[in-house]
């Protein structure tokens, strides 16, 4: 079966001005239990690539520059 693109609003936001992933930081990416945070190749910053969030918060708690915010996924709000 052919596969379509599928959009969803994701719960984790990363402040690109504060994020230092382009300087080699991978803290939020490392601690995510679901491995949904990745480096955006075009900006070098972290972003949420897959909408598979447990809103468990290590990414936000462990970020050294307070760049990450975990929101409650829209379906639960």
């Amino acid at each position: 079966m052919p596969i379509a693109n599928h959009h969803s609003a994701v719960p984790v936001t990363v402040d690109a001005d504060k994020c230092i992933a382009d300087k080699g930081c991978t803290v939020c990416i490392d601690v995510c239990p679901l491995d949904v945070l990745w480096i955006d190749e075009s900006t070098g910053k972290a972003h949420m690539k897959y909408d598979e969030c447990w809103y468990c918060m290590p990414c936000e708690a462990d970020c050294p520059t307070d760049a990450v915010t975990v929101n409650i996924p829209y379906l639960l709000r």
């Binding site: 490392d30 601690v31 239990p33 468990c56 708690a61 462990d62």
Partner: peptide, 12 residues
């Protein structure tokens, strides 16, 4: 499967 620093039922 994830990273032992923050994995499992008691990640936080």
């Amino acid at each position: 499967k994830a990273n032992v620093k923050r994995s499992g039922a008691i990640s936080m």
